[in-house]
Simulated scan of single mutants.
Amino acid sequence: MKFIALIFLSLSLLSCSSTTKTSENSSTFKKISQLKVGASKESDVVSILGQPSQQTVLKNETVWEFHNAENSGQYITIKFKNNSNTVHSILWVLQPNDTIELGDLNKKYSSLDLKASPTVQPNPHSLTQPSNLVDDRLGLSVLYQKTNERIEAIAWFDPTTREPSTQREKETIPYKIDK
């Protein structure tokens, strides 16, 4: 009987830790989605995400990188045009424990209209190929791995400049999101 109680307690603790990770990842999504391309300032970024791990000044832009504390890898990248302290684009590279799904994006952006762009370069070393899903009207791009139904990265960009999807072909394919 004690053994069964111990198993039940262990399973309860595992489900609690899983819930904590989900809420932390949802928290990251909520923080990032508070930032608005073309409106948020450097001070807004610092108040929401803290100080960047690295800042790089290039010819036409300044890049802020926020690294993942666990593996020091690039996690969030924010670009500013050099003549402004306004956010120009945001890239969030999801980590293996991040749990954002297409349905979460659909809930956040009710008018979301993602279309598959055929420009993602195939990786000859991988059996699965990601899809680049873009909503040019909202300025949102999602790198989505359909095989395991996982979002790998989300980018917010200025829809008037079509960045970062400037290299993609004009023709897009509608993509249905299951709600």
Results as ranks from 00 to 15, higher is better:
M1T: 10
A5I: 11
I7P: 02
S10A: 15
L11A: 13
S12W: 05
S15D: 07
S15R: 06
C16W: 10
S17N: 15
S18D: 10
T20A: 12
T20I: 14
S26P: 01
F29N: 11
S33H: 02
Q34H: 13
A39L: 13
E42V: 04
V46F: 09
P52G: 03
P52S: 03
T56Y: 07
L58H: 03
N60R: 08
E61L: 04
E61F: 02
T62F: 04
E65Y: 04
E65Q: 14
F66G: 09
H67P: 02
A69R: 08
E70C: 06
I76C: 06
F80Y: 03
F80A: 02
K81F: 05
N83T: 12
T86E: 11
V93P: 01
L94G: 04
L94V: 09
P96I: 00
P96D: 02
D104W: 08
D104Y: 10
N106R: 12
S111D: 15
L112R: 02
A116V: 08
P118T: 03
T119C: 15
H125N: 13
L127Q: 11
T128I: 10
D135Y: 09
L140K: 01
V142R: 00
V142G: 02
Y144N: 03
Y144G: 03
Y144M: 06
K146C: 05
E149N: 13
A153I: 03
W156P: 00
W156S: 04
P159R: 06
P164G: 04
E169H: 02
K170A: 14
Y175K: 10
D178N: 10
K179G: 02
